[in-house]
Simulated scan of single mutants.
Amino acid sequence: MDLLRIIDDAIYSTPVMNFYGSSLGGHLRHCIDHYDGFVRGVKEGTIDYDSRSRDRVIETSVNQAMQRLESLAKELEREISSIDAGREIRVKMDCGGETGMHWQVSSVGRELQFLTSHTIHHFAMMKGMCCTLGVALPMDFGVAPSTLRYLRNA
């Protein structure tokens, strides 16, 4: 949310050529879509990460992205507070190739780990994009917790 407070819609939606023409908004919307998929499916025990809304408004409007993040945080808190992290679930994600490796068995906790790692990965790309766009971010933005811990102890 801190990033969204320091940029406007123009910066948020600007394609950055050395990042394949993607925008900050595109990366954030992609992450939001994954969390939406988790929230939609976790109660039923099936999460389909391929079924994403790809909402262009979230991708181009800082205000809409902030509103969605706020509501998503509340939804996540409500959903995961009552679910056992070890509970088995089925997850769908097309990983390419001929078979795509569609439905796989996982757990709620493992999917939360995936979402964290996936988000950090996109935040790292967003940090590089921000450098290109002249937006300063904290040094730890987009850095994995294990890396931060390693760097503190090195």
Score class of each variant (00 low, 15 high):
residue 42 V to C: 03
residue 44 E to I: 10
residue 56 R to Q: 14
residue 70 E to Y: 10
residue 55 D to Y: 05
residue 59 E to D: 10
residue 67 Q to R: 12
residue 57 V to F: 05
residue 46 T to A: 13
residue 86 G to H: 08
residue 54 R to C: 07
residue 78 R to Y: 12
residue 83 I to T: 06
residue 90 R to N: 12
residue 73 A to M: 14
residue 46 T to G: 02
residue 41 G to L: 08
residue 50 D to V: 01
residue 74 K to P: 00
residue 40 R to A: 09
residue 60 T to Y: 00
residue 78 R to H: 10
residue 72 L to Y: 03
residue 81 S to P: 01
residue 51 S to W: 13
residue 60 T to W: 00
residue 80 I to C: 05
residue 63 N to R: 14
residue 72 L to G: 04
residue 51 S to Q: 11
residue 47 I to L: 07
residue 51 S to P: 00
residue 86 G to M: 01
residue 74 K to R: 15
residue 55 D to S: 02
residue 57 V to T: 14
residue 40 R to H: 10
residue 44 E to C: 09
residue 85 A to Y: 13
residue 60 T to S: 14
residue 64 Q to V: 08
residue 74 K to T: 07
residue 88 E to C: 04
residue 63 N to K: 15
residue 70 E to L: 13
residue 70 E to H: 14
residue 62 V to S: 04
residue 78 R to E: 12
residue 48 D to T: 01
residue 83 I to P: 06
residue 53 S to T: 11
residue 74 K to S: 14
residue 77 E to Y: 05
residue 87 R to A: 07
residue 86 G to W: 00
residue 48 D to S: 08
residue 81 S to V: 02
residue 68 R to I: 05
residue 45 G to Y: 06
residue 67 Q to T: 08
residue 42 V to P: 04
residue 50 D to E: 09
residue 76 L to A: 00
residue 43 K to W: 02
residue 78 R to C: 05
residue 89 I to P: 06
residue 71 S to Q: 15
residue 59 E to C: 08
residue 58 I to R: 13
residue 79 E to Y: 01
residue 44 E to T: 11
residue 82 S to K: 14
residue 43 K to P: 00
residue 42 V to D: 03
residue 75 E to G: 04
residue 74 K to Y: 11
residue 46 T to R: 15
residue 68 R to T: 10
residue 56 R to V: 15
residue 60 T to K: 14
residue 73 A to F: 09
residue 43 K to T: 12
residue 65 A to T: 11
residue 83 I to W: 07
residue 75 E to M: 06
residue 47 I to H: 03
residue 52 R to M: 02
residue 76 L to W: 01
residue 62 V to I: 06
residue 85 A to N: 06
residue 57 V to R: 13
residue 41 G to P: 06
residue 66 M to I: 15
residue 43 K to I: 05
residue 42 V to N: 05
residue 55 D to N: 15
residue 44 E to R: 14
residue 63 N to Q: 15
residue 84 D to A: 12
residue 83 I to G: 01
residue 66 M to E: 11
residue 60 T to G: 09
residue 50 D to K: 00
residue 75 E to T: 04
residue 43 K to M: 06
residue 87 R to P: 02
residue 56 R to D: 11
residue 89 I to W: 07
residue 87 R to F: 03
residue 88 E to F: 01
residue 76 L to M: 13
residue 49 Y to D: 01
residue 53 S to E: 15
residue 75 E to W: 00
residue 54 R to M: 07
residue 81 S to D: 11
residue 42 V to S: 04
residue 73 A to D: 13
residue 45 G to W: 10
residue 58 I to W: 12
residue 75 E to D: 15
residue 47 I to S: 04
residue 57 V to Q: 11
residue 88 E to V: 13
residue 61 S to K: 10
residue 88 E to I: 13
residue 74 K to M: 14
residue 77 E to A: 09
